[in-house]
Design a protein around this nucleic acid. Sequence first.
RNA 1: GGGCGGUUAGCUCAGUAGGAUAGAGCGUUGGUCUCCGGAACCAAAGGUCCUGGGUUCGAGCCCCAGAUCGCCCGCCA
Length: 554
Amino acid sequence: MKEKIVKLLEESTARCVTEGLFEVKNLPFIELEATRDAAHGDYATNVAMVIASQAKKNPRVIAQAIVGKLIDDGLLLNKVEIAGPGFINFFIREDNWRSPLKEIDRLKDRYGALDFGAGKKVQVEFVSANPTGPLHIGHARGAVTGDVIANILKASGHDVSKEYYINDVGNQMRTLGRSVYLRYLEIQGKAIEFPPDHYQGDYISELAREILSKDGDRYCGKSEDEVLPFFTAWGAGSILEGIKDDLGSFGVFFDCYFSEGELYKDDGVMKLLDRLRQQGSVYREGDTLWFRSTAFGDEKDRVVIRDTGTPTYFAADIAYHKNKFDRGFDIVIDVWGADHHGYVPRLKASIEALGGNKDALKIVLVQLVSLLRDGKPVAMSTRAGEYVTLRQVIDEVGRDAARYNFLMRRSDSQLDFDLELAKRQSNENPVYYVQYAHARIASITRMAAERGMEIPGGDEAELALLTLPEEIQLIKSVIRYPEIVEGAAKALEPHRVTFYLNELAGIFHSYYNKNRVIADDPALSRARLFLVNSVGHVLRNALGILGVSAPEKM
RNA sequence: GGGCGGUUAGCUCAGUAGGAUAGAGCGUUGGUCUCCGGAACCAAAGGUCCUGGGUUCGAGCCCCAGAUCGCCCGCCA
């Protein structure tokens, strides 16, 4: 609908220019927005005012010219008005709203699937928590955000791969292995001193017990250097399996788990740094190697090889992102905790230094979550091993409510997650509001079937019978869905889908309360069944993108 | 000290490329139940869009200065 009017406007303005009614250097992007106030029609454009400043003419005169050259051979419009300082308001002929409904019925679960991303390979990397402990609630928001961004991009035609980066190299891994090893000794009654900077959680002791019951005391009496690699590898592997299980319960699945260790094979990282050094982007100072990120807009240069000879995390990350682009991704999206924002310039700098396009890397920052219970903060301390795990959240509030709650804010705004509120099945909890709308529609369909009424196909339903203002409003809302998907995909903003769902469910509930779908008039009932069934499709498709179930009954 | 993000109704937050009279949910108050599912609906009250300048036909949105809150500023990851 929107595109059709934009097209009319483009043709009309072009005609005005050719006929010399006004002059513009280059035609502006035509902005057409759905009006808030019905008195202003269905859509409005400010294009006349935008042109006016260029053409140095009165905007209303410009508007007059554009309207005069409009050719609406498709009988789309009922009325066109010029209003206020120079808005052009479009009133759509009512029957034009109804036919797009048939599209929903025809496409069903594919309605809202777009193709503007066709041919583009996209990678979304998210979670990527170190395998040193179970996922906690902070990871949960990133997990949902990344997952839903991937779904949205898929829905808009992109070829999407979801990836989890495993930091299995470095100090933290060694600390993990040592933590397990010390607990292993401790269980056997050996005197140990457990350092405060080691992992304190109970799961460490559990891992140690598993090893003991599996392998007995065979690791005792050997040097740390000898046994630590085993404890590290076994611990990390075991924890990663747990992470995968938890993510699975949360409805999050990855296409690829990428190990940091991969990057070091065949001296990969060193070779890459040599290459950068040859082109002058990396330089040596004493025993330290620096990346010249200031040459690409960063505040200061960054160390890539310490004076101890070991590479930094950043060194591996340069190689990792090069690897991503080498794998043929056109767009690479990283979902990060907002506390990493300072890291963005240096990473983009590294892409530029390697001759890549820094805009092909998009960073989505996810703000931290404060966990509440009945409005009171829940104490969380990673060091003490005291935190609410993702597993506990799923078990307590359920997957649907948890996911939906994380999607109710834009990802870069802080979020309070209240455990009691999230599991409360009341009107304070919007998940159920939307799911209830879907269950209601399913219920209507069941009732209709009991009375021997089938949902009509698009050609059978007499859509012209849908004349009530609230019916037109419902239709307008439901056919807007593809625009929502498109906007969410371009902005990488999952919350737009959530807000849309709340609005659509609201309009439906209101309609339902005021009017009977299964009425006395069979033809009208069929038309309304068709409408309501379309709403059901859209609710289901949108909930599907969020990874939230659409129940038939509640 | 520097940087990033925020500040919109009592609370939690939207506000789509700078558009017309700034929205939603919750909460509050008052209504709707002979009827397809009341986890619903209807209505009302509620605003210095942090402050002060600027840009223009027009600013919650853009620019400058300030206030305030959070985060970051490691050869940790």
